[in-house]
């Protein structure tokens, strides 16, 4: 092995360690027996995982995150799939700009987006008397903004190299436009859609900064419940709940990767 290669491996190892260390520490911590975090621990226990259930905030936050994640994912698909099809297949004025607009939520800082959406929802509520602020629909609407770019990206990736003559073949065999879409196009882009759904869910489930502005009393998401808990105390419960969140998100990403290689689109 050459010296250059060795140096590269060391550097890569250090970088990976730097990224993984906090995750490993948090995971380790969640099994400590002591209520106050001490090194080394006096022993190990699983009771902090049980203790999560005693924290109503965590349980409610988890349920809310799940609801918001699922709805935002579905809405993201409903909007992102047709948008991707249009972008990938048709040439029309403003196509490039539309593609950019759909991806902008990726570059707007969550705090900025959160503030903007909060102000927008307040104003809308004043005008229309629709109860948006701190409501489930309000949260979902905000999260759709961040799931769309990912849906568009992942579905578009699955449309690259899509052989459109198979659609013509379907028509030639007697399938109308809708049947062609249902029997041929949809099955062929399904991997991209599944990936988009899973990843959209992950993005929504883990969102903190933007969501901070949009929750209200009695309705918080899991990341925010964790943040609020941290303001008062640090004990292994927080590590346990974090570990759970990491596992859920990690599983969803591994599943996503089976359908669309994430390294290609991230």
């Amino acid at each position: 092995m050459t010296a250059g290669r060795a140096a590269l491996l060391v550097a890569a190892g250090l970088a990976l360690g730097f990224i993984l260390l906090p995750l490993v520490l948090v995971s380790w911590l969640s099994f400590f027996r002591d209520e106050v975090v001490v090194f080394p621990p006096s022993g190990y226990t699983l009771r902090w995982f049980r203790a999560i259930l005693d924290q109503r905030n965590f349980v409610d936050g988890f349920v809310t995150s799940l609801e918001v994640g699922v709805f935002a994912m579905l809405a993201g698909l409903a909007l992102g799939v047709p948008a991707s099809l249009c972008l990938a297949r048709y040439r029309f004025p403003g196509r490039e700009s539309l593609g950019l607009v759909l991806l902008t939520p990726l570059v707007v800082p969550g705090v900025v987006a959160g503030t903007a959406i909060y102000v927008f929802q307040v104003e809308t509520e004043i005008l229309t008397r629709l109860p948006l602020v701190a409501s489930l629909p309000g949260l979902v609407l905000a999260h759709v903004v961040v799931t769309i770019p990912w849906t568009v990206r992942l579905v578009t990736a699955s449309l690259v190299g899509f052989d459109r003559t198979v659609e013509e073949a379907a028509q030639n065999l007697g399938a109308g436009p809708w049947t062609t879409f249902r029997r041929v196009t949809l099955p062929l882009i399904r991997p991209g859609m599944v990936a988009a759904a899973l990843f959209g869910f992950v993005i929504s489930f883990g969102n903190l900064e933007m969501t901070l502005f949009l929750i209200g009393p009695g309705r918080t998401t899991l990341p925010i419940a964790i943040l609020q808990y941290l303001e008062w105390r640090i004990d292994p419960v927080i590590a346990a709940v974090s570990l759970l969140q990491i596992v859920i998100i990690g599983a969803a990403m591994v599943a996503t990767d089976r359908y669309v290689k994430l390294a290609r689109v991230l």
Binding site: D163, V166, E168, A169, A170, G174, A175, G176
Partner: peptide, 20 residues
């Protein structure tokens, strides 16, 4: 008449078989 109502049988250059 749209393609799907014409009742022609087309063999495509790349075959265009439904891969799924």
């Amino acid at each position: 008449m749209p393609a799907h109502r014409r009742n022609t049988g087309l063999v495509f250059q790349g075959y265009a078989l439904f891969p799924h």
